[in-house]
Structure formats: structure tokens, C-alpha cells
């Protein structure tokens, strides 16, 4: 295979990764931006989304697209409900204290992981993609579903942008992020906003989980990778900055895809970790982040 097709495949792989990553990281970033909570259980919401997608798809017989569409609806709702409940029951009672919430979300991570292990079992199970089609390039074949994931990510990220910038709910969230106390003084129920934001962040993770499950498989340990990469992306992009998150996701996804194909996957991981270190040294607030108030 020549250099051109090689680069094309690397870019496609990188973009798919960037797509999933930007949705996952957007959730993490949103939660941190508004609530100042570092959610260590975020990867488990991805996992939970994927596992619920498997349950939904296996309950529905008929065309795989039906099961997938149902999963895309049911899974984020259920995961959002779990997140909403855990926010009310745990995080709120800790007063969103940064240290305490980190420990609490670590606990949440284990509770979710072990519950899934008990209920769903230790196996990796596949969910059928909504359609099977392989695009045949002259040099290699590529699953059309993966391209669909890229498209879906663009639509979802557009949706997030719209909600945050153009709706009242978005305005409220941005206000809570900008200055919690002043927002409260202006009559914004910051407390309730937190719960909804936490649920929304988890729902984004769940959507990423549903999108990824036909490519990978649902497995109770699958949350670790997305968590680590989301943190890398959010740190590089700037915690709480949505455009920074997207930029960093594309950067990390592409560099990971291209470096791991041209050189080695280990080197790719080293480069993204190095990038985090460099960003922390030279731009502690991330590429597009603003200094904390």
C-alpha cells in the first residue's frame, strides 16, 4: 500500500476516534465547567450506555436498525436517570467539594462496574450495527458504519453548541459556569441546574457508548480507556471549554490514528501524554481555556 492510501486509512481511523472522543469529553467538560466536579465515573457511563444498548437491542427482534435506534433513545435516558439520582443522593450532599467528589465518583465507578458485572456478566457482547456496508477503496475496505459515527458526532456536537448558545437552558448553564454565586443571586436555581448538567454529561457519555458498541463490544471493563482519553482531551482543550474540547479531540484522535499507524500505538499514547504535560506547563488552562475565576 502506498503512502496516500495509508494516510487515508490513518485519517479515517483518527476521525472515528475523534468523533467518539469529542462526545465523551464534551460530557466530562460540561460537568466540570458548570459543577467544578471531576467525574471519575464518566467512563462507566460510557460502559453503562453500551451495556444498556445491548439489552435493548437483544430485547427487540427484527431489523438491527430498530434495536439500534431504540438503544440510542433508551440508553441515554436510563443512564441520565442513574446520573441524576447519584447527583442528588451523593454529590449534592458533599456540597460539590472538589476532593470529596473525586473520591465519591471513584466509589460510583466501582459500584457501577461491579453491578454490571453481577447483572450482565463478564463477557464482551456485540450489538449489530444498524446497517452492514463496507466501502471498498482500491486498497482496503472500510466499514460504512464508522463513517456514520463521524457524521453522528458532528450532528450531536452541533446540537450541544445550539443548546448551549441559543437556548434558555444553555444560557442558564453558561451563567452557572461563568459565576455560580452571581447566577444564584439572579435567581437561577444553581442547585437544580447541577443535577441536570450531571445527567446531561452522563447522557452524552451514554450516546458515545451506544455509537461505539457496534464497533467494539459491550464489556464491563470498557470504561477505562474513554475516561483516560477524555481527561487527556479535556486537559489539552481547557477544562470547561467546549470548543477547546472539540479541537483537542480532533487533535488527539488524528495524532493517535496517524502516529499509531505510521509508527506504533505505544508511541501514539506517549505523544498524547507528552502533549498533556506540555499543555500543563505552558498553558495550564488548556489551549482554549480561560483562567479560573
Amino acid at each position: 500500500m502506498g503512502f496516500g492510501p495509508y494516510l487515508l486509512l490513518a485519517t479515517l481511523e483518527g476521525l472515528v476516534q475523534a468523533a467518539v472522543l469529542s462526545i465523551t469529553a464534551a460530557g466530562l467538560s460540561l460537568v466540570f465547567g458548570v459543577m467544578r466536579v471531576v467525574n471519575v465515573a464518566h467512563g462507566e457511563f460510557v460502559m453503562l450506555g453500551a451495556v444498556i444498548a445491548w439489552f435493548t437491542a437483544s430485547l427487540l427482534t427484527g431489523h438491527p436498525a430498530m434495536g439500534f435506534a431504540a438503544a440510542l433513545l433508551v440508553s441515554p435516558l436510563l443512564v441520565g436517570a442513574v446520573a441524576f439520582a447519584s447527583e442528588r443522593v451523593v454529590l449534592r450532599r458533599l456540597d460539590y467539594n472538589p476532593e470529596a467528589t473525586i473520591v465519591a465518583t471513584i466509589g460510583l465507578l466501582y459500584i457501577l462496574q461491579q453491578t454490571v458485572l453481577l447483572v450482565y456478566g463478564p463477557d464482551a457482547r456485540p450489538v449489530d450495527p444498524p446497517f452492514y456496508y463496507t466501502i471498498r477503496f482500491p486498497w482496503f475496505g472500510y466499514s460504512a458504519y464508522k463513517l456514520f459515527v463521524i457524521g453522528a458526532a458532528i450532528v450531536i456536537m452541533g446540537g450541544i453548541w445550539f443548546v448551549l448558545q441559543k437556548t434558555r437552558a444553555g444560557l442558564v448553564m453558561r451563567a452557572a459556569q461563568y459565576d455560580r454565586e452571581t447566577a444564584q443571586a439572579f435567581g437561577i436555581p444553581v442547585d437544580r441546574v447541577s443535577a441536570w448538567v450531571f445527567a446531561l454529561g452522563a447522557m452524552l457519555a451514554a450516546i458515545a457508548g451506544v455509537l461505539v458498541v457496534p464497533i467494539q463490544q459491550a464489556h464491563y471493563l470498557m470504561g477505562a480507556d474513554p475516561l483516560l482519553l477524555s481527561f487527556i482531551v479535556v486537559i489539552i482543550g481547557g477544562l470547561g471549554s467546549m470548543s477547546g474540547t472539540v479541537l483537542a479531540a480532533v487533535l488527539v484522535g488524528l495524532s493517535d490514528g496517524i502516529i499509531s499507524m505510521m509508527f506504533s500505538p505505544t508511541l501514539a499514547k506517549m505523544v498524547s501524554t507528552l502533549l498533556v504535560a506540555l499543555v500543563l506547563v505552558f498553558r495550564p488552562n488548556g489551549l482554549l481555556g480561560k483562567a479560573a475565576r
Binding site: D123, A124, P126, T134, R136, F140, G141, Y142, S143, I215, Q216, Q217, H219, L221
Partner: peptide, 16 residues
């Protein structure tokens, strides 16, 4: 390991 099915599927997509 848990990703075996992914591996075989991607091999199929790739090779045609």
C-alpha cells in the same frame, strides 16, 4: 480476550 470479535470483524472489513 474480550475484543476478539472486533478483531475478526475489522480484518474482514479491511481485506474484503
Amino acid at each position: 480476550g474480550p475484543a476478539v470479535l472486533t478483531f475478526v470483524k475489522e480484518l474482514g472489513d479491511y481485506l474484503g
